[in-house]
Each structure stands twice: as C-alpha cells, then as structure tokens.
C-alpha cells in the first residue's frame, strides 16, 4: 500500500517536472518561432519593392532614396528621446531608491509606473494639442538667438509640431521604462558595498558613484535599450504630433518623418506596390531594432567583469 503511494507520488513529481520543462521549452521555442515568422512575413512581403523599377517607388528614385530620410528621422527622434529621458530616468530612480523617505518612495514608484500605462494615443493627443502650442514661443526664441546652430535654424514652426516636440513626447513615454527598471537595479546594489563605502567616509553621492552605479551599469544599458525600442517603434504619438516633411537638420521647423509614423499614416490607403514599400520600411525598422539590441548585448557582456556583481 505504502509503496504504491510512494511510487505514485514520485510518479507525479516526475510528470510535473516533465510538463514544466516541456512548457518552458515550448514558451522559449514559441518566441523564436514568432520572431522568425514575423521576419519571414516582412521579407516575403517586402520583396516586390526591391525588384520594382526605381521610378515606380515613391519619390521616383528607388527604395534607398525613399527610406534613407525616414531612417534618419527615426534615429533623430529616438536620440532626442533618449538624451532627455536617460539622465532624468536615472535621477528619478536614484531619488526613489536612495534619497526619498520610504513612504514617499513607494508612492512615487507607483506614479512612475502609472505613466507607462497611459496609451500612446493619449500622449499623442497631449503632444499635438497642448505641448506643441506651448513650445511655439521657445522655438521662436531659439530661432532668433541660436539660429546660427544648424539644429535651431529658423524660421521656427508656427504650430510647434516639430521633430523636437515629437522627441520630447517620446522622452516622456520612455521615461517610466527607464526609471522603473533602473530603480529595481539600484535597489539590488549590494548593501555591504554601500555600507563599506559610507564607513570609509564617502559622501552619499560618492557612495552611489562607487558602489551603486558600477553595479548597475549593465542594467542601465538594458533599460535604455528597452526605452530605445519603444522610441523607435512608437507610431501613434509621432503620427499625431509631428508635422512631417523632407529630411532637414533643423529641429524646430516642420519636417522629418519616422518609419513607424509613415507606415501608420499611409497604410490605410496603401495598395499594390505602395503596401510592399511600407512593409519593406517595416523590415528596415525591424533590422535597426535588431542591430541596436545586438550592440547593447555586446556592450553589456563587455562590461560584465567590471560590474560590482562579482
């Protein structure tokens, strides 16, 4: 009697183990399969674009001439977003993890996480109808006083719907991702190291610089890369905020366009070759994101041995 019970118990244990490992394997394989299927779809659907005569492509000068400006536009918007969001995000995270009183920290953490839950179309509407009109005057000032820098060459946009505005909106959207991920990393920094630094007479900022930031470097880069992924792929907010146009260096004039917004705006009425073109644009965005993530992985791996983790 007891032996059968034991055997049965052992049996269930093994089954559970098998089921779980199978499920885990399935989940792992599924993500690869989905990624592969997406890539395959993009490549197959994009192919007609590459075999079509250059004159038939939008702009009339081939796919490269068509895609180049919007690739650069995408990178400009994402760069602005990260330049703004990374320092603020890290500062917010450090404040929550190391400076704020515990009660305040918890509330603030919730608020930051809530920012991530707002749908992007709401950010877009806010950017287009509120932020843009608020930025008209600063842009005017920039054009008048800093116009000699090509980035701020005038005349400033009269609606304020420029790539800089889009970048700022993206920064707000990316901020909660960077802030909440880095906060978790900072909280995991080894207490012993921090206490040791303080015991040796370091100020709080020195302690953070010596014991927290080096430990968190890999995590910060991962967080920034996740934020970059969102900034690169963000569609609705950019489509609503940006008054698009040809590629220009000035950030305060209407112009530039991002891949995701271009697809969102033109896909509903696209058919035939135009549709394949837009899918090809999607493929390019896919490849950019892939490349960015691989570079990030490489940086993280290179810095692994220097981090405080070991």
């Amino acid at each position: 009697m007891s032996t059968t019970k034991l055997a049965r118990r052992a049996g269930t244990g093994r089954t559970g183990d098998k089921v779980f490992s199978g499920a885990a394997l399935g989940a792992g394989a599924l993500i690869v399969a989905v990624l592969f299927a997406v890539a395959l779809f993009l490549v197959v659907q994009a192919l007609p674009t590459f075999s079509a005569p250059a004159a038939d492509i939008t702009g009339g000068e081939g796919f490269f001439t068509y895609i180049f400006p919007i690739v650069i536009g995408t990178l400009i918007a994402a760069t602005i977003a990260l330049l703004i969001a990374t320092p603020i995000g890290i500062a917010v995270a450090l404040f929550i993890s190391h400076y704020a009183p515990r009660k305040l920290a918890r509330g603030l953490g919730y608020v930051v996480d809530l920012l991530a839950a707002i749908p992007s179309v709401v950010y877009g509407a806010w950017g287009a109808s509120f932020l843009a009109s608020q930025l008209k005057v600063p842009y005017q000032w920039l054009a008048e006083n800093m116009g000699w820098i090509p980035l701020f060459a005038g005349p400033a946009s009269s609606t304020g719907k420029t790539i800089l505005t889009a970048g700022i909106v993206l920064a707000v959207m990316v901020l909660p991702i960077i802030a909440s991920l880095t906060r978790e990393i900072f909280l995991q920094a080894p207490m012993l190291h921090q206490e040791a630094a303080l015991a040796l007479g370091a100020t709080r900022w020195e302690m953070i610089r010596m014991a927290v930031l080096p430990f968190a470097r890999g995590g910060i880069i991962s967080a920034v890369m996740l934020g970059l992924g969102r900034a690169l792929g963000e569609t609705m907010a950019v489509a609503l905020v940006l008054s698009s146009g040809p590629l220009i260096a000035s950030l305060i004039r209407s112009g530039n366009q991002t891949i995701a917004a271009e697809i969102a705006l033109d896909f509903p009425e696209a058919f035939g070759l135009r549709m394949h073109e837009l899918i090809a644009a999607g493929l390019v965005l896919f490849l950019i994101t892939l490349a960015v993530n691989m570079v990030a992985r490489w940086i993280i791996n290179r810095h692994k041995e220097f981090s405080g983790a070991n």
């Binding site: 287009a128 009269s158 609606t159 719907k161 609503l240 698009s244 705006l265």
Partner: peptide, 19 residues
C-alpha cells in the same frame, strides 16, 4: 513647405490653433 496633421480632424484642429 507647410505644416501637416493626421486626418480631417487633425488639419482642422491644427488650423484652429494656429493664427
């Protein structure tokens, strides 16, 4: 040259907000 906005409602809104 010029500004643009998404959809009929977008251009009307932008025009209404821009003198």
């Amino acid at each position: 040259p010029g500004e643009n906005a998404k959809g009929t409602s977008g251009v009307v809104k932008t025009t209404t907000e821009t003198a």
